[in-house]
Nucleic acid binder design. Structure first.
Lengths: 143, 143
DNA sequence: TTTATATATGAAACAATGTTGCAAATGTAG
DNA sequence: CTACATTTGCAACATTGTTTCATATATAAA
């Protein structure tokens, strides 16, 4: 699905900032930070607009925010954004403590946790921290 | 275990800030925010010291930080802090989207997720969002 | 194509969160 | 009680997130 189609589907206006962010996230191999997006957009970037755009895109379910750490936030397209109308399955996120990379592990599904009586579940976020394959390889080569 | 014993066990100096934070977390029924701790400590509170203390206590494994949200951070004693030398089992954290309360669900264990080859797992954080029993009750009473 | 208008933007100003360097204070081993 | 490594607290800064409001713009309708 193209960024224009994503916005059309959700009855959102096709503004430059929204299109720029969606295009960038679509080409990015991993979830991206505000700073990544900022650098990509250069002068056309405004922080306030960014936060509001992110908010809008999240509310529509086009993207999701990954909070890997108290200082590490990333954004990624929802998978259902490419497969129309399909609900995103909750997936595990991986955070490399060495290089800082965050990954959406679409293939690792989140377990359905059973909460105590009376609690109402809405969403479940799983972040696994460790070394990504590249950093793990470098690490074992070093010693 | 008393706060003094916790610090002794980890060869940390028994300073007023450390003791105050540990005492407060020990009596708190839920994980607490920086602001909660600040209010409790009043004048004896200094933000820089707070951050450094938290860092030290986390590195020693006395407390853990729960990042429920990009704007919601809480701190809680590790369970092993009361049961000497016992490794804390990773547990699920619950975040109430209505009242903002965070809970450690010690009784809900984290599933061991299988990562792709080459990745090295270090830690796994699970945050379930939804309504806590109190807010869920209020919610159904309202309608 | 033009116009009306609801929506989105961007500036200013602020609030909250987190970090670093350094001199002074303090906990503790001896 | 003293020596000294550790910890504190201040100043100064960096990053992240929010609110208000006037201006600009995307789009539906004429």
């Amino acid at each position: 699905m193209t960024p224009v189609e994503m916005l059309t589907l959700h009855h959102l206006r096709k503004t430059p900032t929204r299109l720029a962010i969606l295009k960038y996230l679509q080409t990015a191999p991993f979830p991206q930070s505000e700073n990544d997006i900022h650098k990509k957009m250069q002068d056309s970037y405004d922080r306030i607009t960014f936060y509001r755009t992110i908010q809008t895109l999240m509310e529509s379910g086009i993207i999701h925010r990954i909070v890997a750490d108290n200082t590490t936030v990333r954004y990624a397209l929802n998978h259902c954004t490419s497969a129309l109308n399909e609900q995103d399955a909750d997936h595990v996120h991986f955070f490399c403590t060495k290089c800082g990379k965050v990954e959406c592990m679409e293939e690792v599904a989140v377990q359905p946790y059973q909460l105590p009586d009376g609690y109402k579940k809405e969403e479940c976020n799983v972040v696994v921290k460790g070394l990504c394959n590249e950093c793990a390889k470098k690490n074992s080569a070093e010693k």
